[in-house]
Design a protein around this nucleic acid. Structure first.
Length: 900
RNA sequence: GGGCGGCUAGCUCAGUUGGUUAGAGCAACGGAUUUACAUUCCGUAGGUCGUAGGUUCGAGUCCUAUGUCGCCCACCA
């Protein structure tokens, strides 16, 4: 056996075990098995994206879930993948083309798509390699990309079917138009941002009454050229007389606009008069329709003005045009006033520019299964964690609007609709819709638009399993519904809700709703922010580089640190020192094994739980052994309980604290004082027993170091991986111990608790008197209780060694020495220098007053008849015991004081 | 405008169904170390739980109001 190096070196160990797992296909789904299935679908990152902090948290959590499921003997399938990110990728490639003086139009559709593919293949999938560094364990051989041929067929099938069922339709509607990407967007892709702009009051001359004007308030004077009317509220006294009359356009004097009445106008806003520009505003569009007004679109697709805006403005950008129109109005005296105005403007999420409402032909989805989608979440067939997101989800479904699914892009799934060549596209009876297209393609032209990327990811839980292809789906059907989905709440509408809807719509069958939901649990992670709570962003430069973190702290250190600072569903304020703590923890774990191996260590004796248990002799089990094993079982139980509720952080902290405090600082230190050879075998076996369970339990968080130590300690003679090893429950461990004659004694555990309390008192006493000068000092103790004295006498060597003292002797009287009273025992420390009686008196008086306050508090409580009659017996009993304990302490402190 | 979440020690957070003297980690300060680990260990100090009311024998925990920060949703031009 090679001795372990002094410090844990993560680099070689990580790559060694990851390679091993890949070579042995350990992450792939077991071929056939009767074991219960467990499936997780990785939220597909953008194929050309790079790893960021959010991925780390998200994937670590998924990895914990699947590794633990494997330890439970389940047949696990974790499917990784990437998505094609239509708009983002196309935009990126178009920028590259622009630098070469090219455009996608100049290149043509086919050539352009080839360019994007080439770009994707060279820049793409870096993220999968980066994720491997994190040590996650998805079935890489099963990786899916949304534009893979098989997956594409899933998406197109979905489209064709939804159309057949009447949920997809084509229509001319007002949509959100992104002038940068030059495509329609869904409502979800538009984010409202507060903007400080101006509100302009413009006056329009009334035709019928010379010298009369109507004043209109607008934030967008550049759309005046598209005006078709002025609207006022029918009940608005100020304007009533003008209804039915006309005005001159302040830009085009010759243009005459009617003044109409419509209740959509808010008389309390601005001047109470609204200019109507149906082509460029949703409300105006509706008013225009109601009043059969014309529709004048003055914008080009890139939001520059077209010829309908007139010679003066044609070709200008919308914001330049705004300034020019204002100037124009000013010169003509039509601008009454202009003042700052705060309002909200819809921005394109991707391109970051204000969107334009625009009327155009698009494809829409009327969502199916809305009611069921509500129900399955309300009734927790799909369980959201944290639960509060249920409300957000429900609110969205309650106010759901049809989804614009067509995009005027080339990179994506081209809509499988064909129109007769040269025919009328609006004659829906003549169109062809199928996955493979018409048999005589020469007579047809395919729809140019592609589908929203989110439309394709709505089928993620179906397509990754091979649906709807019967042959491919059959072997994977058993993984549906999947178990856990781990994702961010920001895509609750974009993705989670839509997957639920598609599952409910398409996977109906034997199991009803229960069988059609795509997953049973959704765990929403928080967002990782910087230490100041700001979002991580490139421009702020506040995002650490994940790969550098792995390099510096190791994947295990990073995972442990990250999870230790991530409360359930709350945003995480990133703090690199926590990651460092994770690395420190790994090193301590490493050294606990080094320590173990310095003592008659033979890996063969660890080959199974039985070989360890056989070495445990009940009669040599001291109270420390009872204590530490009890704590192990308790920790294990608490951890399992926390994880059942998806409380990852508390679960981990349980183990960290057990390992550091109970195992290392207390148990190992105590065991160092045990010198008898007979005890030692048992002590070492207890260590092996604990370390074994520790590795199994921590493996999901820290896969690499645990695997290395697992193998190095001989726990796995047949090279079975830790994640394939059964993880015993506390109940199983209790049974195992019992079958070897070991029953943990609560009395022994209590004894150690007392011992630790006394140890703490002694250490505090020493620290107070000056550590160095009290090294190997004598200590005296006094107590009225025989049992207390027994505890102390029984563990004297431990107490003295761990406190760094030499002798301990019982006395009857209070001594004139510095003292510390704890649990009915007072310790006196024999110090070389004379006692500063005044300081000591002061200390005791302080403590006395504290104790007396508590005595009073409990006395009052017990005197209160309302308390004694209404409080539960447990609370009353507790108060009595407390009072008694405090009274004892009070008399002891008084005696000490008197003696000084 | 509607909804949600946070507000507990200098910082980051725990605090389960209301019940003993409100906890932990980090930071601070003081110390230790001849069977692993200074990437260690021990100890000390530090909060009255955003504010104000209320319910209750008893409230960080329940109710009402309010402040504040953040997020989501929403077509007032």
């Amino acid at each position: 056996m090679e001795p372990l190096p002094k410090a844990y070196q993560h680099k070689d160990i990580e790559s060694k075990w990851y390679r091993h797992c890949l070579e042995h296909r350990a992450f792939e789904v077991p071929e056939t098995s009767s074991a219960p299935t467990f499936a997780v679908m990785m939220p597909p990152p953008n194929v050309t994206g790079v790893l960021h902090m959010g991925h780390l948290l998200n994937n670590t959590i998924q990895d914990i879930l699947v590794r633990r499921a494997r330890q439970e003997g389940k047949r696990v399938l974790w499917i990784p993948g990437t998505d094609h990110a239509g708009i983002a990728t196309q935009t990126k490639v178009e920028k590259v083309l622009a630098k070469e003086g090219l455009s996608r139009q100049a290149l043509g559709r086919e050539a352009f798509i080839q360019r994007v593919k080439a770009w994707r293949n060279s820049h793409g999938d870096i993220i999968s390699q980066q994720l491997q560094k994190l040590g996650i364990s998805p079935a890489w051989e099963h990786k899916v990309h949304t534009l893979d041929p098989d997956y594409s067929r899933t998406v197109l099938h979905g489209f064709v079917e939804l159309h057949k069922r009447g949920y997809i339709y084509r229509g001319k509607r007002m949509i959100h138009w992104c002038p940068i990407s030059r495509t329609a967007l869904s409502d979800e892709e538009v984010i409202m941002k507060p903007q400080s702009g101006f509100l302009y009051h413009v006056r329009y001359a009334v035709v019928e009454t010379v010298g009369a004007f109507i004043e209109v308030a607008t934030t967008r004077p550049e759309t005046i050229m598209g005006d078709v009317a002025i609207a006022v509220h029918p009940d608005d006294e100020r304007h009533r007389a003008l209804i039915g009359k006309h005005v001159h356009s302040p830009i085009f004097g010759a243009t005459i606009l009617p003044i109409i009445a419509d209740t959509a106008v808010d008389p309390t806003f601005g001047t109470g008069a609204l200019k109507i520009t149906p082509a460029h505003d949703r409300v105006d569009f509706e008013i225009g329709q109601r009043h059969h007004l014309p529709f004048i679109d003055i914008f080009n697709p890139d939001a520059t003005l077209n010829n309908l805006a007139g010679k003066d403005f044609e070709g200008l950008d919308r914001f330049t045009a705004r300034e020019k129109v204002v100037q124009f109005l000013e010169q003509r005296g039509a601008l009454v006033k202009k003042f700052p105005h705060e309002h909200h403007v819809g921005f394109s999420e991707r391109a970051g520019v204000p969107i334009e409402p625009r009327l155009s032909e698009q494809w829409f989805l009327r969502y199916p299964q809305i009611e069921k989608a509500q129900k399955v979440v309300q009734e927790s067939q799909i369980h959201f964690r944290p639960q509060r997101w249920v409300k957000t989800y429900a609110h969205w479904l309650d106010n759901i609007q049809d989804w614009c699914i067509s995009r005027q892009l080339w990179w994506g799934h081209r809509i499988p609709v064909w129109y007769p060549k040269g025919g009328d596209r609006n004659d829906l009876s003549k169109i062809h819709i199928s996955i493979d297209g018409p048999p005589d393609p020469e007579n047809w032209e395919q729809e140019e638009d592609v589908l929203d990327t989110w439309f394709s990811s709505a089928f993620w839980c179906l397509g990754t399993l091979g649906w709807p292809d019967r042959e491919r789906f059959e072997p994977y059907k058993c993984f549906y519904p999947t178990n856990d989905l781990v994702t961010g709440p920001d895509i609750i509408f974009f993705w989670v809700a839509r997957m639920i809807i598609m599952g409910l719509e398409f996977l109906v069958g034997e199991k009803g709703d229960e069988g059609s939901i795509p997953f049973r649990n959704v765990y929403f992670t928080g967002i990782i922010r910087d230490a100041k709570g700001r979002k991580m962003s490139k421009s702020l430069g506040n995002s650490p580089e994940p790969l550098e973190l792995i390099e510096k702290y190791g994947a295990d250190g990073l995972r442990l640190g990250l999870l230790s600072m991530a409360p359930q569903g709350q945003d995480v304020l990133f703090d690199e020192t926590r990651i460092e703590q994770g690395r420190f923890f790994c090193n301590k774990l490493w050294n606990a094994f080094r320590f173990r191996q310095t003592h008659s260590f033979d890996p063969k004796e660890n080959r199974s739980l039985e070989t360890i248990l056989r070495r445990l002799r009940p009669k040599y089990m001291g109270s420390a052994e009872h204590f530490v094993l009890s704590r192990l079982l308790e920790t294990n139980r608490n951890c399992e309980q926390a994880l059942a509720d998806y409380e990852f952080q508390p679960a981990l902290l349980q183990w960290i604290s057990f390992f550091r405090n109970d195992y290392c600082d207390q148990y190992l230190e105590i065991s160092k004082t045990a010198h008898e050879e007979s005890h030692r075998t048992t002590t070492l076996a207890v260590q092996d027993f604990i370390l074994r369970q520790l590795l199994i339990s921590l493996h999901a968080w820290a896969p690499f170091i645990t695997e290395e130590l697992w193998q190095a300690s001989g726990y796995s003679p047949y090279k079975t991986l830790l994640m394939q090893t059964h993880r015993p429950t506390s109940e199983e461990l209790i049974e195992q111990l019992q079958s070897y004659g070991i029953v943990l004694s609560p009395t022994s555990v209590q004894e150690v608790h007392s011992l630790l309390q006394y140890l703490n008192a002694l250490r505090a006493l020493k620290a107070r008197c000056g550590q160095a000068s009290t090294r190997n000092s004598h200590v005296f103790y006094r107590t009225q209780e025989k049992e207390r004295a027994n505890v102390i006498e029984g563990s004297l060597p431990i107490l003295l060694k761990m406190a760094g003292l030499k002798h301990c002797q019982r006395v009857e009287e209070a001594l004139e020495l510095p003292s510390e009273t704890e649990s009915e025992v007072t310790f006196f420390l024999d110090i070389a220098h004379p006692l500063d009686a005044e300081t000591e008196r002061h200390r005791i008086r302080d403590e006395l007053s504290r104790v007396e306050k508590l005595i009073q508090l409990n006395q009052q409580k017990l005197k209160n008849p309302d308390f004694t009659s209404r409080a539960p017996a447990k609370a009353i009993e507790g108060a009595r015991e407390l009072l008694a304990a405090h009274l004892k302490k009070q008399s002891e402190l008084k005696a000490l004081l008197q003696n000084l």
